[in-house]
Structures are given as C-alpha cells and as structure tokens.
C-alpha cells in the first residue's frame, strides 16, 4: 500500500457542512485484482459553496463524487451527507437521501421518449407531491430560464447537444436539491452556455444554499468556483480557493 499523503489544510467554512468526508478509502475488484482507488480522503464542504474537483483521469475524483452522491456503498471511512452517515446506511435510506440531490451527467442521460418538459418533470415526480399542472408549470419555468422556452415539447432526439445538457441541468435543479453533483456539465456546451449553467449553480448557492460539487477539466469556469480541490492517485493533493 502506498504511504498516506498529508492533505493540505482545509479553508474555514462558515456555513454548516453539507458534506463531511473523513478517512475515506475505497477499493475496486476482489482478490488479486483488488485495487485501492481512494486513500484516506478527508474533505469538508460547506453549504452553498461551489467546489470544483479536478485531477487527471483515474485520480479518484469520480469515485469520491459517487460515494458522496449515495451511488456507491462506502467501504471504509466516513461520509456524512446533510447530517446522515452513509457508511452502513440501508439501501432504502440511500434512495431517500438521493432525492435531496441533483445530478448532472456528462452524457446528459435524458429519457429519449420523454419531451424536454417531461424529462424535467421527472425531477419533480420523484418527490411525489404537486399535481401535474404544477409540475408542468415548474418545468416550463426552469427550461425558460435556461433559454429553452421554445423547445419544451421537443424530444431529446430533436435537440442539440447543448440543449440536451441544459435540459439535464433543469432536471437536476427543478426539485430544489440541497446538493448538486455535476460531472463535466459544461463539456457539451459552448463557452457562453457553459458559463450560464455555472452562474445558475452559483446563484442557487447564494440564494438557496445549494451546494455544488463539480468534476471538470474546464478551466474557463474555475474563476467562479469557491474552492478547487485537486486529486491525484486517489488522494487530495491540493485544496485552494481561487
């Protein structure tokens, strides 16, 4: 096993933390093929902040993101999400925690047979409240805010890559999540659209206290981040505020 690397001191966070990671280790595979992907990762993320997670491929940033997003079981260490410990949590509880999160994927993963508006409505229906009329209105509102008011009833197949990504962003944000996990959300967008998405996330943090954890290689948006965490070989090697 590699020797642990001392992680740099974390900046002081004023708001109560949304995410607290301590001594997190993670492995993939079994037996001889078992390989450690994370080494003793510690990270505390304050509410309302926009944190960018950077690093080369295979550095472990996506693994951290999926563990914090309740998408993988925590094997060793602690991940506390909105006050809930994820290590040892039941699957049913993880499903409930995920409803307070928003996910934006690099591949937008829109449902091809649902219109833009219906895709966004799925982000509301998971909560089981509000009637369809309210959901339709809320979906239209957020899509309009992202410049898609003339594409509400288009199927993803009839949208451009950038438009699809904006629908995916709308779907992630419409349920007013406490935390947004975004994986290369601006990769398919032009500079202007990309900046718009990041500004919206930033504004949500300011207005609603929505925390954003973003994996990106896009240097254009670093200036908007509150914090930039860099990972290498499964360890946090740099943690700075721009």
């Amino acid at each position: 096993m590699d020797a642990p690397v001392h992680t740099p001191a974390l900046p002081v966070v004023a708001a109560p933390p949304s995410i607290r990671v301590a001594g997190l280790n993670h492995w993939f595979g079994t037996g001889e093929a078992r390989k450690q992907a994370l080494f003793d990762v510690d990270l505390t993320v304050g509410a309302g902040s926009l944190t960018v997670l950077m690093g080369p491929s295979g550095s472990g940033k996506t693994t951290v993101l999926t563990l914090m997003g309740c998408l993988r079981d925590v094997q060793d260490g602690s991940v506390e999400l909105l006050g809930h410990e994820l290590n040892g949590a039941r699957e049913a509880d993880l499903v409930l925690y995920r409803r307070r999160l928003g996910f934006i994927f690099q591949a937008h993963n829109l449902h091809e047979s649902l219109t833009a508006r219906q895709n966004v409505m799925m982000g509301l229906q998971v909560h089981g409240h509000d009637n369809e009329a309210v959901q339709r209105k809320a979906a239209a509102h957020i899509l309009s805010a992202l410049g898609l008011d003339d594409r509400l009833d288009y199927l993803p197949g009839n949208l451009s890559g950038g438009q699809k990504q904006r629908v995916a962003v709308a779907r992630a944000l419409v349920g007013n999540p406490a935390i947004v996990f975004a994986d290369e959300p601006t990769a398919a967008l032009d500079k202007e659209s990309g900046m718009t998405v990041v500004r919206i996330l930033k504004e949500l943090g300011r207005q609603r206290g929505t925390t954003t954890m973003m994996v990106t290689h896009d240097n254009r948006i670093l200036e908007l981040a509150d914090r930039i965490v860099t990972m290498e070989d499964g360890r946090i090697v740099k943690d700075t505020a721009p």
């Binding site: 997003g69 998408l71 499903v95 409930l96 925690y97 995920r98 409803r99 307070r100 999160l101 996910f103 994927f105 591949a107 993963n109 829109l110 449902h111 091809e112 799925m122 982000g123 998971v126 779907r171």
Partner: peptide, 10 residues
Amino acid sequence: AEYATFKAMG
C-alpha cells in the same frame, strides 16, 4: 442508462 439515471434521482 435512463433507468440508472432515474435510480440516481431517487
């Protein structure tokens, strides 16, 4: 992939 997305959404 679409079902997995729904799973991620809760």
